[in-house]
Computed example of a mutant assay.
Amino acid sequence: MKINHLTSAEENLMKLFWAMNSFYLKEVMEQHPEPKPHQNTVSTYLKILVEKGYLSTEKEGRIFKYTVIVPFEDYKKFLLKELSHNFFHDSGKEILEFLMVEKLISQDDLRAYFDLKMELKPTKVKAPKLEIANEILNPKKDKKGKDKKKKNKKD
């Protein structure tokens, strides 16, 4: 699924729509914080967001029910990848350095994150191969039932 860029006004409305997931225009107008935009403005944005593939519509009588198609997590991933590509040369290291310099993340945050993410899994230790010990303790016998060492001494 291709995700398109949103304007800041579209993004602000989508934040409300992501919280609602499925809704009617009337519900949007009721839930929108003050100052509320005009109903025609919201209706226009709904049409645009349907065209951009963020919302789907289902006609119920004379009104439309809108449903979110693009999950919020997918949009966040899209934005972060765009940011990384356009401003940080696709480098996670550069992003992390920037976050540290700007004090948007601390070393304690990172330490706590990695402490939570690290799972201590016991490693499977392979039993040692005791080939030499087995040869000494269990010498191979030839067909006559004699030890190989004794045969070698006769030669």
Rank of each mutant, 00 (worst) to 15 (best):
L96N: 09
D109N: 13
D147A: 09
H5V: 07
E82D: 15
M118C: 05
D147W: 14
V101T: 10
N138L: 15
D90L: 04
K93G: 07
M14L: 11
L120K: 15
T41V: 13
T41C: 11
R111I: 14
E102V: 03
E27D: 12
K26E: 12
V42I: 15
L6D: 02
H38N: 11
K150S: 10
F23L: 02
D90F: 05
K150M: 08
K146Y: 11
T41A: 13
F87N: 14
L46G: 02
I132Y: 04
K2G: 05
M118A: 11
E102T: 09
K146C: 07
K77C: 03
K103V: 10
H32I: 15
M20I: 00
T41Q: 11
K117V: 13
E34F: 11
K124M: 04
L83T: 14
L120P: 02
K15D: 13
F64T: 02
G53C: 08
V42H: 04
K47E: 13
K77M: 12
K2Q: 09
S84V: 02
E10L: 06
M1R: 11
T57P: 01
E11G: 15
D147V: 07
S56T: 13
P35F: 01
N134C: 11
M14Y: 00
S91L: 07
S91E: 07
K148N: 10
R62T: 14
P71E: 09
V68N: 00
E94V: 11
E51I: 07
V125P: 04
I105L: 09
D109W: 03
V28A: 05
E94Y: 15
S8T: 12
V50D: 05
K153L: 06
K124N: 07
E135V: 07
T7Y: 09
K151F: 09
L25F: 08
N12A: 14
Y66K: 00
Y54K: 03
D109I: 08
K124S: 09
I136K: 06
K36W: 03
F17E: 00
E60N: 11
H89Y: 14
K148V: 11
D147L: 13
P122T: 06
H32S: 15
E94F: 15
K121A: 05
K148W: 15
S43E: 11
F64K: 06
E51W: 01
Y24L: 08
L99C: 11
Y45G: 03
K81S: 13
V50Y: 06
Y45E: 06
E94S: 12
